[in-house]
Deep mutational scan, measured.
Amino acid sequence: MLDDRARMEAAKKEKVEQILAEFQLQEEDLKKVMRRMQKEMDRGLRLETHEEASVKMLPTYVRSTPEGSEVGDFLSLDLGGTNFRVMLVKVGEGEEGQWSVKTKHQMYSIPEDAMTGTAEMLFDYISECISDFLDKHQMKHKKLPLGFTFSFPVRHEDIDKGILLNWTKGFKASGAEGNNVVGLLRDAIKRRGDFEMDVVAMVNDTVATMISCYYEDHQCEVGMIVGTGCNACYMEEMQNVELVEGDEGRMCVNTEWGAFGDSGELDEFLLEYDRLVDESSANPGQQLYEKLIGGKYMGELVRLVLLRLVDENLLFHGEASEQLRTRGAFETRFVSQVESDTGDRKQIYNILSTLGLRPSTTDCDIVRRACESVSTRAAHMCSAGLAGVINRMRESRSEDVMRITVGVDGSVYKLHPSFKERFHASVRRLTPSCEITFIESEEGSGRGAALVSAVACKKACMLGQ
């Protein structure tokens, strides 16, 4: 009897593995994704193909990295998701002549009506938060230079001027797309009239992360975010950046690689679950690469896999709870928690219980395998993109072996128990001629924006502006 049951459990697990095998990517698959990513990057950089390229390769006008001589107080704003952060950054000489960066910050959550109302409502709310922060720190009387981390696709015309191309991540505030974001912020500050600010720089969160990590390690020339969304930036040779005049030196390019796949480059790798996630998203047909990796989508992918296993009578005796059938019910943090389970399955059992399920031991094991399959594919897909960037940098610099540091931020990278190990191992397999160091950014977005502002202020002083 026991043997029969054991055989049935083994057969069930084997069927589960057959279904989950769809998520496995072979090294040849990853090399294919990497080569296609490089081709799209090239198209994004070139003037004649930029418009139709899915990977936009947006110039950021960040050319210099901090040298350690900029000092002063800077205000930093960070808008990239449902939370908005205001930070005071003091850049100065530390002990023994070292450079020191001290920060104080406060988080504000953005109400739904500000995210989806008008641009005026959104930026009025942001300036209200700045006003509140300055009151708390008794700094209303000071006109501070301000660095703005704005983590949406922007076409820069200068370091302090950028046109919002399109909202992502659930934002829909009308009247912002096609307009200068810094102008919208300046107008809102003017409307309030109770404080003055000098907006000197606007950067993407990947750029802010790279600059913040450069402060720790001067070989950091790539910034990457794996959180709600997924994106990367890197220092490109100016001669390859056709959208900006000049051939000397390097400029940081914001790849906006989340949109890779929007022209069909990933079609052969998309599964039924991916198509369902895409169809029910706020932007169907867009940001397809990001939807395979980002935390906004990972939990939902797992939920759809679990429903398939229920329908195949391989999980929960073929019956799903009402909660499990509800879109968004299986949160991405559950994926991390399930994979963090120590082996007694308590954590998995508790999560499934909150979803109205009474799982068996085998159910718990199957749910864990589903989570591992989805998150491992995410790590491997992400590795193909980064390997594409790094191999490109090595080739354009004609280096036999390139040493490089990548600064990384984002909740999936930082909080998932195995993502970074799987990701690092896969990147290294795909970049055999590179020695890569990964560092995690601390308060990256805010500190990085302030350091970019410090560079901009120093330049302005040198130019006598």
Rank of each mutant, 00 (worst) to 15 (best):
Y349S: 03
I19R: 09
V154G: 07
V91D: 04
C364V: 06
G175N: 05
M8I: 15
I390M: 12
R5I: 13
C461R: 15
G44S: 05
A320D: 12
L185C: 06
V199Q: 11
V406F: 00
H424R: 12
K136H: 06
F148H: 07
Q286T: 15
S64H: 14
A329F: 15
G68V: 08
S100I: 06
R368L: 07
S281P: 06
G72R: 00
S433T: 08
A176T: 15
A176F: 13
R85L: 10
D400W: 04
T362R: 09
D247K: 01
C129R: 04
M197Y: 08
L184W: 04
A454G: 10
V335R: 02
E322G: 11
F150M: 13
D409P: 08
E245G: 01
T116K: 11
T228D: 02
Q337K: 08
K420L: 12
I293Y: 05
D267I: 12
S426I: 03
G175A: 02
E112R: 11
G444K: 13
D29N: 08
N240A: 02
D132E: 03
K136P: 03
E236W: 00
S426A: 10
C364S: 05
R85M: 11
S418Q: 14
D160R: 11
L75A: 00
I225N: 02
L463I: 08
V200H: 01
G388I: 05
D344S: 02
K136C: 10
M115Y: 12
W167K: 13
G446Y: 14
A10R: 15
D400A: 04
E112F: 04
K15F: 15
G175C: 09
Y413C: 05
R403H: 04
M34S: 05
I159T: 15
V199T: 12
Y413G: 07
N231D: 13
L146D: 04
V406E: 00
L122H: 02
T149G: 13
R403Q: 08
R155L: 15
G92E: 06
A379T: 07
E93F: 14
P66M: 13
M381A: 12
L415G: 12
A450E: 14
V71I: 04
S418A: 06
I436Y: 10
S212K: 04
E242T: 07
H424P: 10
V452I: 10
F316E: 13
K161Q: 09
